[in-house]
């Protein structure tokens, strides 16, 4: 009996020891699911998708890349709002490319089966203008390793972030896209990984 208990304890301890405290902690900081919205393709706009949608955390579908597009109203005091319907084009170092259609809540993603990028990767956001895809904004830097756009594109511009992914509008007072669907959850964003509140207990 004692041996069985000892063995059980050892197995349990080994299993607990297999966790990744860094990944677990950063997911914990993303907070609970918003109870007012379903946990579907619209959920958690702004947050880093692949932090949960990966083989380790197990959220389905598994994602290799994912993010959310926003628009900044002309008044800088106003917070950015979700801009849906754009196309995010990715180009990896093997020359592979893919166009990802952002949904009505601005969320876009690729599964590893669709796109398994070789880093570094480049990206452009395209707008559908009269049936043609036209470059709206290009990312100034390469992406070195992070599949979640929201990991770097956090809520505010800081010494560690350029702020959210913002699409352009020729006339910012009348953006050429509809406002986000009313059933989109409010943006949540990721904790700034460099900020003081990101600590390991």
């Amino acid at each position: 009996m004692r041996i069985a208990t000892l063995v059980s304890c050892m197995v349990l301890t080994s299993a607990l020891g297999c966790g990744d405290p860094l990944r677990d902690r950063r997911v914990e900081l993303l907070g609970e699911e918003d109870a007012n919205f379903p946990a579907d393709e619209r959920h958690r706009p702004g947050q880093p998708c692949t932090w949960c949608h990966n083989a380790y955390e197990g959220a389905k579908p598994e994602m290799s890349v994912g993010g959310t597009t926003f628009f900044q109203p002309p008044d800088p005091e106003e917070p950015p709002f979700i801009a849906g319907g754009f196309v995010v084009r990715l180009l990896d170092s093997d020359g592979k490319t893919i166009n990802l259609q952002a949904n009505a809540c601005g969320n876009y993603w690729a599964t590893p089966d669709q796109f398994d990028p070789v880093y570094p990767m480049r990206t452009r956001i395209l707008a559908n203008v009269d049936g043609d895809l036209v470059v709206n904004v290009g990312m100034g830097t390469r992406i070195g390793r992070e599949g979640s756009c929201g990991a770097c594109h956090t809520q505010q511009k800081t010494p560690f972030s350029p702020g959210p992914i913002i699409v352009n509008a020729p006339d910012p007072a009348n953006p050429p896209f509809p406002p986000a669907a009313t059933d989109c959850p409010p943006p949540r964003f990721a904790p700034d990984m460099n900020a003081r509140d990101f600590t390991f207990d």
Partner: peptide
Amino acid sequence: DGLRNFLPEEYSDPELAQANMTFAG
């Protein structure tokens, strides 16, 4: 376009970092 050399006050005050243009980009 990356990590910025920030003042201690800018570390926890994004508005100050924005006013000083000490943000990525």
